[in-house]
Simulated scan of single mutants.
Amino acid sequence: MSWHKVSEDAVNGLHAANADSSVGSAASTVEDGAINEESDEPTDLTTEPMAFLQGLNSGNLMQFSQQSVLREMILQDLQCQSNSLPKLESHNVGGYNFSMDLKEPPKSHWVYSDLLNKLYIRMEKTFNVDVQFKSIMPIQPLNLRVFLCFNKDVSGAVLRCQNHLSTEPVTHHNFKMRESLLRCENPRTTYCGSAQGKGISERYSVLVPLNLSRSGSRNGGLIRQTLAFKFVCQNSCLGRKETSLIFCLENSSGDILAQNFIGVKICTCPKRDCTQEVRHFRGENEKKRKSLATSDNEDDNDVMPAKIRRRTVSCKQETESNDGHDADYLPNDWEVSRTFDGQYRLAITCPKKEWLLQNIEGMIKESAAEVLRSPTKPNLRHYANNLLNLKKRALDLL
């Protein structure tokens, strides 16, 4: 049983909050049940956020997720996102449990690195993506919008180069498709956007209607559909800028219900480039780890007296040696890594379900506190909602 924790720098600062005065006032003002049961109106959360959070417990936390201000703020993010600039983030604010799966076939022309969350593929070669989501009542038409985006310049339009564009003849039916660097093999695909578009709905993208009639009983109640894509230019045509492929689950009104993304490098030698970048990524992490260990040793040497210094250095070296030895023998199902966009990923196996739920609830309470402090930051709301969905999945485990 494994679970993933993905945190951002803003969430890591929660422990630094001064909660002494708030917790003290909360003892006399807040009782169990942060929501007033006699009224549909939520209590005033802006004046006493920590007092409100103290009233939360594992029994009413799910009610909080459905009826409180946090839930309302999460649902507000579904509107007007299509006209905003894209963000390299994954979320499931609509509650559809949207996810993707790339399975590399044998002798394929592409390779996927789970460590870097990046796809390496040759131009004009097709790759399959299995998208899955659960059906929510009332049933509404859903579409999948997919487009390319520059990692360091999300406002920049990703356009085809003139060399490859000139090899494709212009017809009355392929005008927009010809301009799009991304192609989808689904016959019902619609090609959207223009070269001047910056917002999600305005830039070059492919819009694929999803088949809601597929039975999801064999996939744990999830609807699963396979889509095929390919690229008709290379990253070298784009000035060798790093790119990502963003998948947006939308309703018929264009509201974004969920989003996922992967890094993409379109090149002539996918396996070679993947191996080199993975090796470089691990090398950089090793350098950072050694740099931090060296700085810790220097700090200890500057502070400790001379007589104690020799003993301290000896113990420090022995501790580091033991840590390095243990790191080489971590279980196969444990993983600690950092994604290419600066976030953190943790995967562990818990021997007891109660331990798993306690860890998730602790992260939920801290993220809810940060949302109340900074209600205008959408990333925090997305992260809090993902944790709530994670707890639901954990509760369903046997």
Rank of each mutant, 00 (worst) to 15 (best):
L357A: 03
K352L: 11
Q343M: 14
V336A: 07
D296I: 14
D299F: 06
A293G: 01
K365I: 11
V371L: 02
A327P: 00
K290A: 12
D333K: 10
V371F: 03
I308S: 06
N301K: 12
I360K: 00
I348P: 01
Y329A: 12
D326S: 09
L346P: 00
D300G: 04
F281K: 07
N285C: 08
M304E: 07
F281W: 15
E366Q: 13
D326E: 14
R345Q: 09
S337I: 02
D333Q: 13
L330C: 04
Y344A: 07
T339V: 04
W355G: 15
L356E: 10
E298V: 12
R289G: 02
P331M: 01
A368D: 08
R310K: 09
E361C: 08
Q343D: 12
N359C: 12
E354V: 13
F340I: 15
Q358G: 05
T312D: 00
T349A: 09
C350F: 09
K287W: 04
Q358D: 13
L356R: 08
K316L: 08
A306L: 10
D300M: 15
Y344T: 14
C315Y: 02
D323W: 13
T319W: 05
N285E: 10
L330E: 09
Y329Q: 14
T339Y: 03
S337D: 11
P305G: 07
C350G: 00
K307G: 05
E370P: 02
R289Q: 10
D296V: 13
G283M: 05
L372H: 00
S314P: 01
D328S: 14
R279H: 11
F340S: 15
C315K: 05
A293Y: 01
E354L: 10
E277M: 03
P351Y: 02
T319V: 09
S321V: 01
E366L: 06
L346D: 13
D299E: 15
G324W: 06
R279M: 11
R310W: 03
K288A: 13
M304W: 03
K290I: 12
A306K: 07
T349H: 09
I348Q: 07
S337K: 09
F281P: 01
N285K: 11
A347H: 10
N285V: 03
I360A: 03
T294N: 11
N359G: 12
I364K: 01
E320Y: 06
T319C: 09
D302I: 09
L357K: 03
K288S: 08
E370M: 15
S337V: 03
E277W: 01
M304D: 02
E318S: 12
T294C: 08
S314R: 06
